[in-house]
């Protein structure tokens, strides 16, 4: 490994230790031309409790569904029920043949249901989240 790569690895390790010591989810350091961002991966055990799909979507509640078949994962900032979305945000992704297909909130609102757990196999049209639009 080159010296430069060793430096980067040492930086990342130090940031990861800082993250754990201070019980933080994510840290971002910008200096000169470099940006370091380190985040904790969502742990399946800590993922939100799976809720049953709402039988008939209520007014102003939109379902966000998967359009790919693959393994669903939450984004680095795990979305929870009650989270307020200021704008379009990546909530998770469907991993398919090594490619991450992002699942986005498609606008602002409030998450009212998280319907899949991290690591679930999802198919086409499978509801993933319910978002109440303001």
């Amino acid at each position: 490994m080159s010296d430069e790569k060793n430096d980067i690895a040492a930086h990342v390790r130090a940031l990861a230790a800082f993250l754990v010591a201070n019980d933080l989810q994510q840290i971002c350091i910008e200096r000169e031309a470099e940006t370091f961002e380190v985040a904790r991966a969502p742990v399946q055990k800590e993922s939100p409790v799976r809720a049953q799909p709402t039988p008939a979507p209520r007014a102003r509640v939109e379902q966000i569904a998967s359009d790919r078949v693959g393994i669903f994962h939450f984004s680095r900032t795990t979305p929870y029920v009650g989270d307020v979305l200021d704008g379009d945000r990546e909530l998770g992704y469907v991993e398919q043949l090594g490619i991450r297909n992002p699942i986005r909130s498609r606008g602002a609102g409030r998450i009212v249901a998280v319907l899949q757990a991290d690591g679930d196999l999802v198919d086409y049209g499978r509801p993933l989240f319910e978002v109440e639009r303001s």
Partner: peptide, 26 residues
């Protein structure tokens, strides 16, 4: 059984990525 797309064949029964992904994930 897993849904791989909407009715038109090009987006379901011919969607190679969704079909292969289903086989691998299962």
């Amino acid at each position: 059984a897993y849904c791989v797309g909407p009715g038109p064949v090009g987006r379901s029964y011919l969607d190679v990525a969704n079909i292969v992904s289903t086989a691998l994930a299962t």
